[in-house]
Nucleic acid binder design. Structure first.
Lengths: 208, 208
DNA sequence: CACCTATCTGAACGGTGTCAACATGATCTT
DNA sequence: AAGATCATGTTGACACCGTTCAGATAGGTG
């Protein structure tokens, strides 16, 4: 049920301008970067006057939050795929990490926007509470890999540790300084897997 | 002849406006946050006209980079302190992590600015190459904790893994969702140490 | 039909980054 | 000492930004 169940209601003048604005914003973000993402540019891209968005979002911030929300859904889809393609549950954690970093690399501006809006309210995206959220999936994958599900505190800590570590890696994996090391290791994925290995097991209960 | 290094000689009109602008920027950043940090506001705070900064920085970006550079120095100082206060080298890694997160928490806007400017050029701050940089210090601490210094690749990976993991933790440690867990664990530092423990050893060569 | 309400437009306000033209005054040359 | 030079600072302007508000428009409801 990861369908975005939207009705085909076309409202009064434009026809679902709200969604059109979010799409336009993501298009600008991908094509021109975060610096070019002004509310006026979004309105322009959607073919509408600069004031029109204010009938659908109280703020520029609120629009950006909607864009970010879509990003979290994309990310949890990517995690879902990585998990589904892992034959052995013990590989799932690393594969999720690889998929996560790949998503961040393929959508750099969106990924940054996602965390910027989260940090501005010092909270995880509300999406994290849902059943199929990336966070929840990582937790499940940890259990399947052998993490004790009865010790809720430890499980939570292991999930947090995994998420933090991979997020840090995603933000820095593109640093120029790592390029020589990557090549010496024979490619990007080898480098990522090696760093993930150094993170440890993410839980003292999981043995290699 | 005016010397080329960072001299304390007071230039023509203002008297080291360049430094005054960086200080003003950091003051605004702490007091009002990143959103209020406009070039004009910085000039205002420094008591100078809006165009004056352009004789010292080619861009707003270049000013922010200078501010960020100062931040990296503060951070490496914090790491130095954490290291110096660790009696046993085996505690140093965790203590550095705690000190790092504390710095990020005490200077949230500055910390974000530091990484924003780094990521914009997909590179670590030049400071990272210097002898007393935080990155270099972590590497030394890993060696002192038992990491094999002769295997350069593994050492590099361990350093990267440590840095990424702690950075991720620093960015998320304030999330509201973690509050109950923190309190259940009896405090902030206990929570941080627990997450750090879950990161593993950062190097397969280090045994607990 | 008339009315109502959600939606969109146009113009305006204060703020921003940046630039070109001009003013100033410390230093260098003579 | 006097004048030239050039780094430094100011003023004013431009285009763009987020946001607001009065008014135009048009779908839904009586």
């Amino acid at each position: 049920m990861r369908e975005t169940g939207n009705a085909q209601v076309r409202p009064y003048h434009h026809g679902d301008l709200s969604r059109a604005l979010v799409d336009a914003a993501r298009r600008i973000l991908e094509a021109e970067g975060a610096q070019a993402l002004s509310l006026r540019a979004v309105a322009r891209e959607a073919g509408v006057s600069p004031a029109a968005p204010y009938h659908h979002f109280k703020d520029k911030t609120e629009l950006l939050e909607a864009v970010a929300h879509g990003g979290w859904e994309m990310l949890s889809d990517a995690i879902f795929e990585a998990r589904r393609n892992s034959a052995d549950p013990r590989d799932a954690i690393a594969n999720i990490g690889i998929g996560y970093v790949r998503f961040a690399r393929e959508n750099p501006a969106l990924y940054r926007l996602m965390y910027d809006t989260s940090r501005d309210r010092t909270a995880m995206p509300e999406h994290a509470k849902e059943e199929d959220s990336g966070y929840h999936q990582v937790q499940c994958a940890l259990v399947e890999a052998g993490c004790d599900p009865t010790d809720a505190g430890e499980l939570e800590l292991a999930t947090i540790a995994s998420w933090c570590a991979v997020h840090g890696l995603a933000e820095m994996a593109n640093f120029k300084e790592f390029q020589p090391l990557k090549e010496a290791m024979g490619g990007d994925e080898a480098f990522l897997r090696a760093v993930l290995r150094h993170f440890g097991t993410f839980s003292p209960r999981i043995k290699h």
